[in-house]
Design a protein around this nucleic acid. Structure first.
Length: 251
DNA sequence: AATCCGTGGGT
DNA sequence: TACCCAAGGAT
């Protein structure tokens, strides 16, 4: 849930989710469409599908227990290098470089004197991060660096006056120079397939049972784009077309 | 390697 | 008002 989504928006959904499905087996026993519905408006609903698939994999292949090894975590649906490292470290105390957007920014500033990290994770960043993971209580290091980035060393308006490592920050020492790398393109959204998919799925999510195609027309009039987006949702497994031509979340 | 994939709060 | 971007992953 936290992938590309702020903590404050995740928390209420997370609480409700765990109350309804306390264990992986509980979630695995449900149709994937229920996960998509319960995902609500967190965004990137394919994550809901993958989390459901993840619960199935844990139930069927790991005896219902979340695996503790990085390689096993990495093999789970929707779990990439960051999430595998985060779970292996936070939950099991493993020594891994937990490289999320916050950590990349903190290390980029404190060590490399750059306001923002490169657009994509570089080998140099990984080498640096791995070299900093301590042997003793590595999970404390991981959570500390991440929280520092989330609460103090923020992307905009960093609270440098209350930073605990200000005296060893290379970016501070360099006079906090502004970012001068290639422009990081912003995501336009209005009129995109993403927006269209979001509108279509919202109709399905907020409706019990199935909906007629006409209901989808109401939220996106451009037929070419609507058809393409709907086909994409079906291909992703987020939506199913029934024999009677109506649409529904996967049952 | 570059693109695609949602949503909403902050500025 | 328009940006910016947030505990990324899959292809």
């Amino acid at each position: 849930m936290l992938q590309q989504t702020p903590v404050s928006r995740v928390l209420p959904v997370y609480e409700a989710w765990l109350e309804r499905w306390p264990t992986p087996a509980d979630l695995a026993a449900e149709p994937s469409g229920e996960a998509v519905r319960a995902w609500g408006r967190l965004g990137y609903p394919r994550r809901a599908l993958r989390l459901h698939a993840c619960a199935v994999a844990i139930t069927e292949q790991h005896g219902g227990q979340v695996p503790d090894r990085h390689a096993d975590l990495l093999a789970l649906p929707g779990v990439g290098d960051y999430t595998a490292a985060a779970v292996a470290s936070f939950a099991f105390g493993g020594a891994h470089a937990v490289l999320d957007t916050n950590v990349r920014r903190v290390l980029g500033r404190a060590v490399s004197a750059r306001e923002f990290p490169p657009a994509s994770l570089t080998r140099a960043e990984r080498d640096l991060a791995e070299g900093l993971v301590p042997d003793d209580r590595p999970e404390l290091w991981a959570v500390a660096v991440m929280e520092l980035g989330a609460l103090v060393c923020t992307a905009n308006g960093p609270r440098c006056d209350s930073c605990p490592i200000l005296d060893l920050c290379a970016w501070q020492r360099a006079g906090r120079p502004a970012y001068d790398g290639p422009p990081r393109r912003g995501q336009t959204y209005a009129g995109t397939d993403r927006q269209c998919r979001g509108r279509l799925l919202a109709v399905l999510r907020d409706t019990d049972g199935s909906v007629a195609p006409e209901r989808l027309h109401e939220v996106w009039s451009d037929e070419t784009q609507r058809t393409r987006a709907l086909a994409g949702l079906v291909a992703d497994g987020l939506v199913v077309e029934r024999d009677d031509g109506r649409y529904a979340l996967p049952g």
